[in-house]
């Protein structure tokens, strides 16, 4: 008989390296037509980070995502970056990119200020224009200013910046200190069916509520959460590298190393919680790794809720779950007999 259960798990996760410096640098070049190029040493590994960085630069310059071209991942042409690791790209590289864009924008403001007869600090960007704060009708097209910066003022608008998260070393005796600049939080709730005659677990639904600060691109956040949950489902129920007695792997192929396919995926509901981190670019933190952290815990709690079996070693294969069900029945039978 199939028994339904539900389980909850929450988690916290830091952004960036543990105390160790993990800086990023970035260069933003504004073109003569007001579009821009971002140079970054980070690598697109499928998570969409280059699009996030383009959106951050675009936001700072008041232009659109498509107006920013990103050049990345070449040690000859792009500035130093610690890389696509530790859920750090949006926060650390994003801060560097925003600061670089701010510097390039500062050059445009200096050029635009005399034209609009105000001081540079009275200017702001909005929808591809540079305008006077509080007087949006007094504006110039950002492309006209960028062209003038190069052609009249002789000041091509280029900005570069670096960013490194603020940390404090940990005390070697007590581990006390500030290892990370910021953290994200999440809760996932799983609903499962457990077959009490076979121990087989089917994950029906996972509701995930994640904090990433400001979601720079909600669609990419959802993509990360869905991908993380698929890793979590495999970690919870199926995946395991096995060794023989001499220490050689026995299932190093995708026939015998079982991982979830699209057919094994539950219905996934992604929610992004309202959150803003003043230390991140436009309030953003990050989301990459945290998405796979609480999935297995939620599924294992749902198994416990369904059949009363606490599996304490991953993965919770059908064999392990069934062994737990059998042991529990034997225990109950004994109690009845004793009673």
């Amino acid at each position: 008989m199939k028994r339904r259960g539900r389980g909850i798990a929450c988690m916290w996760y830091p952004i960036g390296f543990t105390v160790a410096a993990n800086p990023s640098a970035a260069v933003v070049k504004i073109n003569e037509d007001g579009t821009a190029t971002l140079l970054t040493g980070t690598v697109e590994t499928g998570q969409g980070s280059l699009t996030i960085l383009a959106q951050i630069v675009a936001e700072e310059l008041g232009i659109a995502t498509d107006d920013v071209h990103v050049v990345s991942a070449d040690t000859d042409t792009t500035p130093m970056d610690t890389g696509a690791i530790a859920s750090r790209t949006t926060y650390v590289t994003g801060n560097a990119a925003r600061l670089a864009a701010e510097k390039a924008k500062g050059i445009l403001f200096e050029v635009a200020a005399p034209l609009l007869q105000v001081k540079a600090d009275q200017l702001e960007v909005c929808d591809r224009k540079i305008q006077v704060k509080g007087f949006p009708q007094r504006h110039i097209d950002i492309g006209d200013v960028a062209d003038r910066a190069r052609g009249v003022n002789g000041q091509p608008p280029i900005g570069s910046a670096t960013f490194n998260p603020a940390t404090v070393a940990l005390d070697p005796e007590t581990g006390q200190g500030k290892p990370f600049a910021t953290y994200v939080y999440a809760t996932q709730i799983a609903e499962v069916d457990v077959d009490d005659e076979t121990g087989e677990v089917e994950v029906l639904r996972i509701v995930a509520s994640h904090d990433c600060g400001t979601p720079i691109n909600p669609m990419l956040v959802e993509g990360q959460v869905e991908g993380g949950i698929s890793m979590g489902v495999g970690f919870a129920l199926e995946e395991e590298i096995l060794f023989d007695a001499s220490g050689r792997q026995v299932n190093s192929n995708l026939t015998n190393y079982i991982m979830p396919t699209s057919l094994d995926m539950p219905e996934v509901v992604v929610e992004i919680v309202d959150s803003y981190d003043p230390t991140g670019p436009f309030g953003a933190k990050g989301v990459g790794e945290p998405t796979c952290v609480s999935t297995a815990a939620a599924i294992l709690n749902a198994i416990h809720d369904a059949v009363g079996v606490r599996v304490t070693s991953l993965p919770a294969t059908a064999e392990k779950v069934y062994a737990g069900i059998k042991a529990k029945r034997a225990q109950e039978a004994k109690q009845i007999t004793a009673g």
Binding site: C10, Q176, K178
Partner: peptide, 18 residues
């Protein structure tokens, strides 16, 4: 590690997911 935490939303995620 006795770090004072900011922008903490554990409860918000719990309530939203629930």
């Amino acid at each position: 590690t006795s770090q004072k935490l900011h922008s903490v939303v554990v409860r918000e995620t719990l309530l939203q997911a629930a």
